[in-house]
Amino acid sequence: MLTTVVSPDVRSPGSIDDAVRQLTDLGADAMPLAGGTWIMRAGLRGETPRRCYVSLDRIAELRRYSVGDVVELGAQLTHRDLTSITTGPAATALRQAAALSAFPQVRNVATLAGNIAATGFAAADLVPALLAGQAEVELAGPEGPHRTTLASYLTSRDQRPSGELITAVRLPAPPGRFSAFERLTVRVGGEYAVANVAVSVDVDAGGSVHDARIAVGAVEPVATLGPARALIGHPVGDDDAAQAAGEAVAAGLTPREDPDAPGWYRVAVVPTLVRRAVAQLPQLIDH
């Protein structure tokens, strides 16, 4: 007995336009299918499957990417793909998150947009890395293409319109931006994180942080940006500033409770993860 209901219909359009058309026609009965590692476990989560899934697997343009002052990443790139796309220190957190997430068998299949769009997936690893990096999502839908910040997409994720799908993610990579990712798991490899943290900073010529963002996942139901002001004005990698920022971020979190970890514990480890992420940053600058 396998773990998913096998009756839903799957369509496999060859273009974004066709996928949007099919998703729009099917309405709430359908949703996009990327790698499937989340949707194939819907039954395990007690969810009722949709009547139809629209696979994005045959849409080659969703695997495109380009690097530059903005890194443009196709929705269907896998975690493994992300680890091999060289995109500089602004994307270090994203590469690290992609490399640390799950197992090779899942990283080879699970996609960038799937990690963002999976509802109920609090421990997604790519999401904090993208949030801290001020990522935007490119969307296709019946009204045509449009773009929004990842932060606003996440807060409206449960009410997105039928027919919409993520086509790409834009990650700004300006000069002087550095980022790092840390996660805590109960075992070393593979598990969902108790908490995952990404730090992204903009550093001036003198080595001082002039802007910063900290994102935390797995603690609340959806990853969020926390206050990073304590890092600003300090040398990059400053441990006291990192501790202060980590405490400020932790103080703003309302943790979820589940069998994997009590909420207080998820919050308690956040300052240490922030310190570890900040401690990585000077090494990135040296390289």
Partner: peptide
């Protein structure tokens, strides 16, 4: 390598 238990045959 992939986990065949989670890989939809459509893909």
């Amino acid at each position: 390598p992939v986990a065949a238990c989670l890989f939809p045959v459509a893909n």
